[in-house]
Design a protein around this nucleic acid. Structure first.
Lengths: 211, 211, 211, 211
DNA sequence: TGTTAACCGAGACGGTACGTCTCGTCTTGCG
DNA sequence: CGCAAGACGAGACGTACCGTCTCGGTTAACA
């Protein structure tokens, strides 16, 4: 019997200009004043847009920010795609030396985590996701999991090459070095450095027990 | 110098009864309606207390909840102390079998993470801590770090017994199995189970590379 | 120069329904609980209106009440206009007998001062006007002075007819019988009755000294 | 069965110093910030007195101010009594020329009404009295009526001397020139000047009608 | 090419909560 | 026991945003 609640808006007539302005305003405000002080009224005012234009297309502040951040990531990706040398998040290099490859990528992640332009909206979304399961799952599915999948791929390649035991589940294995970094960043449980991530890779590959 | 602006209240005259009522109301509301819908007005009303009594003693909603949660933990700890068999958070058992001991404690943690009475306030505080560095650090220092220290102790004991390589930094090592669990819980990046934590311990101790 | 700070609201979009509800609620509350216990929150709640709708259009409680009372007077006036026999506030009768005409009107005023529906808000505004000069002057200009002007007109007519000395200033002369009644009512300096106002007219017209 | 409500305080142990300080603080605050912004907390703080000391002895802010003002008047009276030449409010001169005597006293009243030290508390009390009948009646009985009685006395003397008709009620007669001045002052219905009060006396004594 | 239906900006509306202020009561030492 | 001090329960203050609801105005696609 079809959805009949508030009559869904006609997305073909949507103003692209407004959408862009809203994304930009949302990101800018989160960076400038933080997520809790970013309000829908503020976004609308900054974007030069009526409040209803936001409420028409997004159900909540968190959703605006999630889309804005996805958009930002795509832009960054497109920009990165232009300079194809950068391994970046687009495929983990496979030099045959697993430890070296992982250390390289984690060092790049450390750099990214320290970039204020990414940090503020990332934290905002992560925090909202902690407390709002639905958004959290979307955040993970759309932003986190694709990146983690790259580790899965690299670990599987290493398994084929004999550098990782074949009975190891790569999806769990990657957490041994990714999650510690994530937790230190999210919860301020410790400092983040290249040395630290290098150590994580070594511990994870070699284990804590004597060989 | 000396006394400054708002004249700090005289803590010797503080009403113990009000403090307790505020703790209880805060925890109850977070469990019932979630952190964002928990308001200071609501806490005050539920506790049968004037709003000013909250503003007098705490600077923000997050601080109320942090203290309330600390208090809750202490109560739980005291209760646990009554039944001294429970290893609980008070020291990790040391049977000589490191893997078994860690698995046991992580299974207990899994249970705790699933207890709704702990989950709601924990998430609320963790989320606020992600976005509010000062609170995050206090959350870690007062709640998380003491627990992690127990792992440090147990790992050091294992190092002396030869079950862990002597060059390993225990504070980092513990993150190999604790952080993955934390991240799955915080960010819904994957399911949580006894099997999962058992696997984490095995991977961390033995490493991913073939031996 | 030109438009300054808080951006004045667009009065064309104002809700007539809300305005009416606010007037009614304000008058009702002043009658029921008195001026000091009439709060903006109370008016808003009673009118089924958001507080901001009051703060948007009026700068203070006193202003709300002044307008509400002006509105009430206009309503009463329109109602009185329907029954055109009533001299009421709309012109003092001019039968040629000045004393009789004044006594008649003052007796009507006595009745009005005793009507509880008028008394509570009138007192409230008068009291506020005593202590708040700006409001007091508006109260006088918009409510009191128009009524007093009717006496001026009647006295001038009497001067033309020779019943009042031509050198008398009617604006002052009217105070001889109007102000005593006003003061007794405002300050409880004495009882109010037809006999009293009749006496005032006689004393004022004939003077205290023997003729 | 005697009043037994809150156990009446023992007035013999009352602190005279506190009472004085409270009077002074109350008057000073009303003059400085106006009656509505004068709070009990503010009086207590300024007087260096506990709030309870005020609540113990007075039922309301208005009562404090009424007593403070009565006290002030007594002080002023005692001061005036020292310089016995001043006719002041203490007896209206009786030179035989009623009009001249009244004009003189009313001119002194005009001066008093313009003295800011008297104006602020007088207005405050008058305003409160408009809206609070009980206080209003006490204000009149203790402050106003004694002054008015002096006019009664002078008018009676004039009646004996034949300057005022014997059938005139002096208590009403005095209102012909006193109330207009009172109303202009209270309600800002017109300017106050010597010329104005002189005119009032002339009109009242001679009447408005031609002789 | 003129009509019309939508999205658009703007912002008023009924509400909720904020953090502050003051009320009048209650509690705790000091003298 | 009166007092200074001030914490307390209560609740109004005026502000900021919430999410909904009109308002014209513009801007397509259709007639």
């Amino acid at each position: 019997m079809a959805t009949n609640n508030p009559a869904p808006p006609d997305s073909t007539r949507r103003s692209e200009r407004s959408r862009r302005a809203i994304y930009d305003a949302a990101i800018a405000l989160v960076v400038e004043v933080g997520y809790p002080k970013t309000t829908i009224e503020g976004i609308a005012a900054r974007a030069g847009v009526g409040k209803q234009t936001i409420y028409r297309w997004w159900p909540s502040k968190a959703d605006v920010l999630l889309e804005a951040f996805l958009d930002l990531s795509e832009q960054a990706a497109r920009a990165a795609g232009q300079e194809p040398e950068s391994g970046g998040a687009y495929g983990i290099p496979d030099t045959g030396d697993l430890a070296a490859d992982l250390k390289l990528v984690l060092r790049a992640t450390v750099d990214e985590l320290r970039d204020p332009a990414f940090e503020a909206p990332s934290r905002a979304l992560a925090a909202e996701g902690v407390v709002n399961e639905e958004l959290g799952r979307r955040f993970v599915a759309q932003l986190l999991e694709p990146s983690l999948q790259l580790y899965v791929d690299r670990l599987r390649s290493a398994q084929e090459a004999g550098g990782v035991r074949p009975d190891v589940d790569p999806r769990i294995a990657l957490e041994l070095f990714v999650s510690p970094l994530a937790q230190r960043w999210l919860q301020y449980t410790g400092p983040i450095s290249y040395e630290y991530t290098d150590t994580l890779v070594d511990y994870a590959l070699n284990g804590l027990a004597p060989r």
